[in-house]
């Protein structure tokens, strides 16, 4: 029984990291139909920033990380994505691939490909015991942060002027611009937000893994991508739950599958993804403007 509860706790905590990562990808997708694979590298660069600032007072290092990643996200928008904004989503996607490849190789050039171990906020790794259930503080924090950021962004989108403009742009970018919304500004803010989200993921991820390596991005971006679509394109809540589902399904399969099938776990996870896509083509939480309009 304890094992079952423990596994559920594990599942939710793995899901929370994926959910955060999906939130960033879902946000940009909602606003500008961009699947940003380079977000994985935003996170990775955040991790390297933390590695370099190890030894600094942690809040300062965290602020620096947020600053660096937001700057990077804004630069990416300005230099790479703005010129292809009106192209089809496929071109934007390949652009994000190229950007991701570029950033990865710059990291390899600067830091080499060998992983670098570093230790930040190790206290977070220690568990809190509730009865016999072990919950690492980091996971509690991750879940709280995910919930907090989701609420914060939801409020931002509903209550602030720029948030409302962003939602308008998500529904119909051209129409929004005709109505006087400054498209550039809206998108820049969206990029800045994903920068913040990526930096937060970087901090949580670094605290968990204690390692900086140039290849961390792919898995996070991939899960974010999958989560956004199964959650319901354009729906932030959907993206978060999509990420959660991928994490929970992964951990539960790991726990339930017999040993000889456990190595095939990923195949089962992605079979579930295909099943969701076929059964609920619009995603679990249908977002605004996810249907192709006639």
């Amino acid at each position: 029984m304890i094992y079952v509860i423990q596994t559920l706790v594990d599942a939710v905590s793995v899901g929370a990291v994926y959910a955060l990562s999906a939130l960033g990808i879902g946000l940009l997708f909602g606003v500008m139909r961009l699947v940003n694979f380079a977000q994985g590298e935003f996170v990775t660069i955040g991790i390297y920033t933390l590695m370099l600032t190890v030894g600094l007072w942690f809040p300062l290092a965290a602020i620096l990380t947020v600053f660096v990643v937001v700057l990077l996200a804004l630069l990416a928008d300005r230099l790479a994505f703005k010129p292809v904004r009106d192209a089809d989503p496929a071109t934007m996607l390949i652009t994000s691939f190229a950007l991701s490849y570029l950033l990865q190789n710059v990291l390899v050039l600067i830091f080499g490909a060998r992983p670098i171990g570093f230790n930040i906020i190790p206290e977070l790794g220690l568990p809190v015991m509730i009865g016999e259930i072990r919950i690492p503080r980091l996971n509690i924090l991750t879940i709280c942060v995910a919930a907090g950021l989701l609420t914060g962004i939801a409020l931002f989108l509903r209550r602030t002027r720029i948030g409302i403009e962003m939602r308008a742009a998500a529904v119909d970018f051209r129409m929004a611009r005709l109505l006087g919304i400054k498209g550039d500004r809206v998108i820049a803010v969206a990029f800045a937000l994903t920068g913040v989200l990526s930096a937060v993921v970087a901090i949580l991820f670094a605290a968990q893994t204690g390692t900086a390596a140039p290849t961390y991005g792919l898995q996070l971006a991939l899960v974010g991508f999958v989560a956004t679509v199964i959650g319901g394109m354009g729906s932030l809540v959907g993206a978060v739950f999509g990420g959660m589902i991928v994490g929970v399904v992964t951990v539960c399969l790991q726990a339930l599958l017999p040993p000889e099938l456990r190595v095939f776990r990923e195949a089962f996870v992605y079979a579930v993804v295909i099943a969701i896509l076929v059964l609920r083509p619009d995603g679990l939480f249908q977002g605004v403007g996810s249907r192709e309009r006639v």
């Binding site: 991939l222 991508f225 999958v226 679509v229 199964i230 190595v263 095939f264 776990r265 990923e266 195949a267 996870v269 992605y270 079979a271 993804v273 295909i274 896509l277 076929v278």
Partner: peptide, 13 residues
Amino acid sequence: IATVAWLAIVTTV
């Protein structure tokens, strides 16, 4: 996305 999932399945298998 289904093709991404498909690739992951085939690779794993």
